[in-house]
Computed example of a mutant assay.
Amino acid sequence: MLEILAITTPIFLLIGTGYLAMGARLVNREQLQGVATFVLYFALPALVIRALTQNPLDQVLNTPYLLAYGLGSVAVFAFALMLTVGLQGKPLSEGALHALGMSASNSGFIGYPVAAMVLGVSPAAVIMALNFLIENLLIIPAALILAEAGRQSGRGIGSVARKTLLRLIRNPILAGLATGLLLAVTGTSLPGPLVQMIDMLANAAGPAALFVIGGTLFGLRVRGMLADVGQIVAGKLIFHPLAVLGLFLVMPQADPAMMAGALLFACAPMISVYPLLGHRYGMAGVSAAALMVATLAAFVTLSVAIWGMSQAGLLPSH
């Protein structure tokens, strides 16, 4: 167990550093947003481009992985909608935000740093790129379209979908995915200085992302929202990994390394912009509290998941 804590503790110490930096007023919200912008617009796209260009394309576009992780995420998304809208009678926009919180991992800011320490930088980057495809082209658009449809029920779903997709096209992660895929498909080699710049940006992604997560958590509170917060957190940290595991187990000849990576990413908390989206759809308090609780609880769930996978022989020996 000490070996597991040696992996997870530095990650959460980095998160704690960001939290303490905000608490000690060494940085403010505007400065933290600047670091987050750097990660989102430069470091993570560079990481995706490196993953797509430094690995064989057939390894990157791993169809069994996309099916298992994608279907597992969709299953949790659908379950959350049935639970919140169908059984609990919540509005569609609120149900869509619950579904998003349960099924979309923070792949770039937490999933990748954890997986990089456990599996290695190159496999973690490939899996992150695959997850970005699923999250940015499937889960997030579906949640936003449903949330908009619930909030603006008088407007056609087609108009809502078009506006959502236009907003997603400007997403820097998708720009990185498109650039990396284009370079990989055409076999284009970048000049040496440009490759070095991409490497430097990519290497900064993990630490900077964890620092931002810690700073974002400062000041968040859980007040009178335990039922909704508990439901979202349980869905994200327990049901999502179990659904992904179940799909991998029924997938013929599943790659153990890819399965381990999928579980690590599925065990990560929800996407970091979750509170921002929650604020837009009337769930500011619940979404912020859910992110805080899930991030703290992930220290335990990730440690348990890593221990379980090491016992099952899914992790590489160091």
Rank of each mutant, 00 (worst) to 15 (best):
M1A: 14
M1C: 10
L2H: 13
E3N: 14
I7P: 08
I7S: 04
P10T: 03
I11G: 08
F12V: 06
L13K: 04
L13F: 11
G16E: 05
G16M: 06
A21E: 01
A21M: 12
A24P: 06
L26E: 09
A43F: 00
L44H: 07
R50W: 02
L52P: 04
T53I: 02
N55Q: 15
L57N: 03
D58S: 14
Q59M: 12
L66C: 06
G70K: 01
G72L: 02
G72F: 04
V74E: 01
A75F: 00
F77V: 01
L81A: 07
G86H: 03
E94A: 15
E94Q: 15
H98V: 15
H98W: 15
L100Q: 00
G101D: 08
M102Y: 01
I110P: 08
I110V: 13
P113Q: 00
P113W: 00
S122A: 15
P123M: 00
P123S: 07
A124F: 05
N131S: 09
I134V: 14
I139T: 02
A147W: 03
A149P: 08
S153Y: 11
R155G: 13
I157G: 10
A161M: 10
T164P: 06
R170H: 12
I173N: 02
L174K: 02
L174C: 05
T179C: 15
L182K: 04
V185L: 13
I198T: 11
I198E: 08
L201W: 04
A204N: 10
T216W: 02
L220P: 03
V222F: 12
R223Y: 11
G224M: 11
G230P: 05
Q231W: 14
I232G: 08
I232M: 14
V233C: 00
G235D: 08
L242R: 08
V244R: 03
P252W: 08
A257V: 15
M258D: 07
M258P: 10
L263C: 01
L264W: 01
A266Y: 03
P269T: 06
Y274D: 00
P275H: 05
L276Y: 09
G278S: 05
V286L: 12
A288N: 06
A289M: 00
A290E: 06
F299D: 06
T301N: 07
G308M: 14
Q311H: 12
L314P: 03
S317M: 14
